[in-house]
Design a binder for these strands. Sequence first.
DNA 1: CCTACCGATCGGTAGG
DNA 2: CCTACCGATCGGTAGG
Lengths: 227, 227
Amino acid sequence: MSLAESDLSPAAAPRRPRGRPRKTADERDDGNRRRELVAGAARLFRQQGFSATSTRDIAAAVGMRSGSPFYHFESKEALLGAVMLEGMQGALQRQQAALALLPAGASPRERLRVLVRNHFDVLLGPDSDFIPVMLYEWRSLETTQRVEVNRLKDRYEAEWVPELEALHAQGQLGADPALARLMIFGALNWSAQWYVPPSGRSAKARARASLDDLTTSALQLFLKEPA
Amino acid sequence: MSLAESDLSPAAAPRRPRGRPRKTADERDDGNRRRELVAGAARLFRQQGFSATSTRDIAAAVGMRSGSPFYHFESKEALLGAVMLEGMQGALQRQQAALALLPAGASPRERLRVLVRNHFDVLLGPDSDFIPVMLYEWRSLETTQRVEVNRLKDRYEAEWVPELEALHAQGQLGADPALARLMIFGALNWSAQWYVPPSGRSAKARARASLDDLTTSALQLFLKEPA
DNA sequence: CCTACCGATCGGTAGG
DNA sequence: CCTACCGATCGGTAGG
């Protein structure tokens, strides 16, 4: 899946010179080296944490020398921001795509199932280092980028609200929707701490099945029977 | 509340000399300096994370010089272990005390309420830095101490199992008890990320009330109506 | 993107 | 528990 790089707007975009637009270090996407850096950083930040990961670790992970990441990113914090931004962009995009596949008359319960299933995929599926890093390295992000990431996170979570409100109105959700949202996200996000993805033969199919099962269980836990 | 220090067995205890047993750096509890260090470390580890907190930060927080924490602890990791160990000991002790106050015929639902209420207190109440550090700095713990802390965590969680099983058998819990436990802990633990304790006038009473409310909401979300 | 490097900070220790 | 210190590592940069 390709993520639209065009959405990546830098915090403060200075004067645009004429002619071929010269990209800042944060914007350029020469080949795929920048992407490799972000993906490698995501993996290491998730495994070891942001502070415990050196920029040298990240450089080595993608076969660069110690100073080279700073050709692509202003700072270690900017790399963290890129991980989170890319993660949230992908998550939001996949969420919208998943919802778009639903038939027009889908019930709130069906829509919530799609949201939960997609969230598990974002958290536990392939390339799932980005969002856990966002969840657990939040405090290391600098304010400017925090605002930007937060905007995406708000949009992501906003899609859940009408469904939770409808379910609450129908008596299928036993708590105030705002609080229910926090608790449900907590329950789902925590899975990043304990879920062990299948490995070996037909790992991919079994992974899909296990995320389906998790989704079913989560809905059974959170929702009452339809009246 | 005093925590039994006697359970603190060092990783490798060498020859015991005769006479008054000389405590290792990890065991001694001269005055309250060691306790101050652990409490200060808990606060800083929670605020900034383990790796981002220097032993100098911790020393300064309790009015020591940079080298002095190493008079009390072998290493920074040992300090982290002490934070987690002390946190789990306190949590387990409070959980057992809370359960002991219940009448003999208390229902699984009533017992779960007490467990959830106590867990919120452990996570969000006064001196609540220890357990969040345990939850979010797990990977920085060394294996020896990880085993020790894990043992306490298992005992803590084990008290939840019979109640969840009983509730599931009664149709009040909509998912497999083992998975329900993970999701419920996720929902509760996540509150450490968003809960803002009341401040100002009568903060203490309002804090208690808000944790009571959270407990009620959580139970309403997770449990079906009794048949 | 590499080479070569800098100043700052870090965990930890010897000796008192 | 302090003083004084060490070697290692870190984020980041100049110049090519």
